[in-house]
Amino acid sequence: MQLERIALISDVHGNLTALEAVLADIEARGITRIFNLGDYVGKGPRGQAVVDRCREVCEVNILGNWDDFLPDPDREWPAGGSMLWWQQELRADQRTWLRSLPFCHDFQLSGRQIRIFHASATTVHHRVYFDHDATAYRGMFENTPATGDGPLPTVVGYGDTHDAYYESDLGRTLINVGSVGNSLNDPTPVYTVLEGGADATAPFGIQFVRVPYDAHAELAHARELGAPELDGYEAEIIHGIYRGTLYAGKTSTYHRD
């Protein structure tokens, strides 16, 4: 029986070093289909290169929260601030491309109806954490104005929280695919592999893959480029500690995840 594998990546956040390590691992496994769940930019220093690389190698690219608000032409970011630096590091065509990305993508594998989006079924700006309640869980499988009508999914994959996990209940499976460029708690980049077939009787598998990389080299690139919030970037990519804890009680333009 012929099975195919699809790599799900998310939350690269301008970390080109981590992205290249993950892409090399995907290629070494012979996987040719890559679906990207968004948040290409912000936090890391090389959003422009990340966007170009993902446009080159990803079969599916969908919208993340940073991809929506960072390039928003109606927002005026403060001069000299972090957000303006990350926004101006992108080309104008990339800002347009990011905001035009689809909200979700639906497909079938091994008889399962699968849907991927960035954060939730309602908006890229509504976050569903690991410790959610039953109502939040059920909501991830619903059709909304954002997802559109169609067959209800039995498997949902999302990113956003930088916290990979698997949960199955009531005949449905929820997967957080993790973060490539900004994984928290364990800072090692993580992505997810789906394996299945065209036939409903084909086996179905879900695998989480962590890929070590040279995070110190990535931090050195950020310093060379004069990227903002270097202390926060170091805390996240070296130690897996969310930078918001460093800025507690301080005014920051930084948006959670």
Rank of each mutant, 00 (worst) to 15 (best):
L109Q: 03
T188V: 13
F208A: 13
L101T: 00
L19G: 01
R243V: 00
D131A: 15
L70Y: 08
I175L: 14
F208M: 12
D106S: 14
V57G: 07
G240K: 07
G159P: 04
A227K: 12
V41F: 11
T96L: 08
L152K: 07
V211I: 14
D231V: 15
T201P: 02
H255G: 01
I206T: 11
Y40C: 01
A220P: 12
R99M: 10
S82C: 12
R99Y: 03
D214I: 15
E56Q: 14
V180F: 05
G30S: 14
R243F: 00
Q2L: 12
H132Y: 11
G232W: 09
R95G: 07
I116Y: 03
R112L: 04
R256M: 12
E59Y: 00
I206N: 10
Q88L: 14
D160T: 06
D169P: 01
L90V: 01
S100V: 05
D68N: 06
F69R: 15
L98I: 12
V177Y: 00
Q48Y: 11
G181H: 03
Y166F: 14
L16P: 03
T144C: 02
L152V: 10
L219T: 11
R243H: 00
S120Y: 00
L84A: 00
Q88R: 15
E195T: 15
E89F: 11
G196M: 08
R115T: 06
Q207L: 14
L174G: 04
G148K: 03
S168N: 10
R91D: 09
D163S: 04
V57F: 14
L84F: 03
N15K: 05
L23I: 08
R99I: 03
F117I: 09
K250A: 02
T135C: 06
P187S: 01
T253D: 01
G171K: 05
N61P: 13
E234D: 12
D133V: 02
E229K: 15
G80K: 08
V209E: 09
D257R: 07
L225K: 08
H105G: 11
M83V: 03
I6Q: 09
T201G: 01
A235M: 08
A136W: 07
G157A: 15
H221W: 13
G44I: 06
T123Q: 07
T96W: 04
W66I: 08
E27W: 05
V155S: 05
D131C: 14
K43E: 04
R127S: 06
C54V: 08
V57L: 13
H125C: 10
D214K: 15
S10K: 10
I237G: 07
D11R: 03
M1R: 09
L16N: 03
P145Y: 03
P102C: 04
N182G: 00
T32L: 06
H118P: 08
L174V: 01
P71V: 02
D257I: 05
M140W: 02
D257N: 06
R112F: 05
F117Y: 14
G64C: 06
A21I: 05
L184P: 06
H105P: 13
Y247H: 09
